[in-house]
Write a protein that binds this DNA or RNA. Sequence first.
DNA 1: CGCCAGACGGG
DNA 2: AGCCCGTCTGGCG
Length: 874
Amino acid sequence: MKKLVLVDGNSIAYRAFFALPLLNNDKGVYTNAVYGFTTMLLKVLEEENPTHMLVAFDAGKTTFRHNTFKEYKGKRQKTPPELAEQLPLMRDLLKAFNISYKELENYEADDIIGTIATHAKQDADTEVKIYSGDKDLLQLVDKNVKVGLTRKGITNVDTYDLAMLDETYGLTPSQIIDMKGLMGDSSDNIPGVPGVGEKTALKLLKEHGTVEGVYENLDAVSGKKLKEKLEDNKEQAFMSKELATIMIEAPIEVTMDEMVRQEYDATKVTELFKDLEFQSLLNRIDGEAEEVEEVEDISVEIGKEFADIITDDQAALVVESLEENYHNASMVGIAIANKNGVYYFDPSVTESDAFQAWAEDETKEKFVFNAKRAVVTLGWTGVRVEGVAFDMQIASYLLDPSASSHDISDIAKRKKGIQVQDDEVVYGKGKKRHVPGTDELAQHLGRKAKAIFELQDELQRELEENEQLELLTELEMPLSVILGRMEQNGVAIDQEALKAIGEDLSSRLATMEEKIHELAGESFNINSPKQLGVILFEKLGLPVQKKTKTGYSTSADVLEKLESEHDIVKEILLYRQLGKLNSTYIEGLLKSVHTKTSKIHTIFNQAITQTGRLSSTEPNLQNIPIRLEEGRRIRRAFVPEEKGSIILAADYSQIELRVLAHISQDKGLIEAFKNNMDIHTKTAMDVFGVTADEVTDLMRRTAKAVNFGIVYGISDYGLSQNLSITRKKAQEFIDKYFESYPGVKDYMESIVDEARENGFVTTMLKRRRYLPDMTSRNFNLRSFAERTAMNTPIQGSAADIIKKAMVDMAHAMEEKQVQSRMLLQVHDELIFEVPKDEIEVMQDLVKKVMEEAVALDVPLTVDVSSGDTWYDAK
DNA sequence: CGCCAGACGGG
DNA sequence: AGCCCGTCTGGCG
């Protein structure tokens, strides 16, 4: 028995679109119709389990029906653009699911379905099921053809067979056409006979069978008025019937073979769902995919003597620990793969002389995945690792920073290496996370090692093709070692100072909470935007400025506009500010103090940002407060580890605008930096057409915002929001800026062209970022890609420069044999701990090395400052 | 318990 | 509806 399912794609999409709220993903792509369509699709696949399947779509605006009646579908609203942009996504989805689909010039989806169904039903061994939201399709019902009509929502379906049709309407399938002929269909602008509705049509058809029957027996029709209407609209009735008839001989050739249902492409489906942010559907798919994933055991030798296996100069090394945070993690196993085989060891192997000798021997090349993690994990147990020659995670990141994930199993899958299971499958997640038995663990780690060993070549070749190998070997890999040392070294913290600030904050917060409740007239949770919204905008009746998708916006910029309206607002703003300090920076930092060292050991993620910047986690030491004095005090708790040392901070001045000057080659901008001008003042002079001493504070602030905007890929709207000015005014500033700096304008235009042609942009050191949305038909996506094309070379080149400076600085410090240590990097600044007797040497050295990291056509300048704590280094 | 949204800290 | 990030809280299922 074969089962063919035919789906009316447009009709289902329409239904879904209007049934669901207008969802969109974080890129601004609307997804509600695709979502509804997908849930329906999954349900159909599950419930019907068809052997054959096809989805039909309407094509174009006109069909053969327009020859009959040019106003056909005339009154229908144009497809909303929010829905239209989702139709291509549905096709992508079907491709990923390996489900065939069809559209045909001049015909509607109905006709495709009618033709195929009529063909297929000739075979008594085939059962046909049609899904649509359109009652018209009921005319196709037959003894082996059923029609499922969506009812409210989209996954509620009423299924009609011959009996059900008779029961519901008392009609045969072909009479459905007659019914439409008489009553018409306003949504398709089929006229029918005016004044005849469903009830009358049904009554007439019961008595006379067909439209033809009705007219042949017009005398027998009761009711004078009705008879007149029928007479007057005879032609229209017959034309309507014709319009409503689904074509069963459309010129299409689709064989059953072409509609055979195939396995879906799990990788593509997963990627698409992730893109669309269909989390719940992802889980449904995942559950199924895991069961299918049967892997055959590879040969992994367990319990060898370590000394016996290293016969070669190259090996992949896996150091496994389950903790996300590798400071204080416990190793669960070690795996090695070389050209002779794959080997698994108990963690205790790291205590052996043979292992340590190999680890420390820099001529023994190690290939790893996330070198820093392996090196620091081993570092905590006292094992030094040298000779890390290749980091697969970073290689993958450099090839494409947007690749959804950089873990071994994903890369192995992408690069068609040996199959590596997801950690989550092997170890479980959340509370159920556990170490499996030795055999299973050895298999898993062995696979990882083998995949690294085997894919090294290919990734390296790809990097060479992109001219990125040097970026890996000369910049990122050495940097990884430096970052590892910084992390493991950690930053000393004055816990007592933090606690003291914390107590002050806590008591002030308690007082403020009371006061806010009093002003509100009731007690509520101030930290809940939802509850706060009700208090401010309903109970106190403050004017609503902005809404979020879940309710009233209570963000700081909204509250700032309401400050004059009610005393409570100022209190809430301060409460929020202090609350953030207390929870994130006092309690949070104290929680991340290492139990053994009493210092703070962050983790710098080197393979996460889309621009090449680092990020910092657990804790994030790249966003310690500085802008407001109240928060800045937190920095007093960041102290030198050694008595008699100080904290030294060195930051690049305006690095992004200098990079912009360099890559755009704008004459004015280059000149300004060469003359060491204050760049915001200079911009103010040019934009406002005044002399240096006429620049007011406000003018400089405005110019500063414009400069930032330029770097980010500005829009008049964004600038107007930022400066609380009109859009028109904002656009004037932007125009004036581009007039003053035509080189920048040219750059912005040419980088966008370049991105569109190449599909990616690059930074000074050949870092890459792909921008597939440059050619998207979706305005939001395309605009975002264009701004990214403008910003990434700037932000990314600045990231390249400071990374280079870090590598150079590590060499310089080694050469000078100083005791000073690099502690942190915060995007455009480096923080050091410096013994007092090295202050002068280091001040000069840091400045020189950072300023000379690369040679631009404008000078790079670095400001250096120092003090007893991070706070004082200002 | 895990996930999301909102809010907010930094460059 | 100008770029790049991470963390905390409340609220939901």
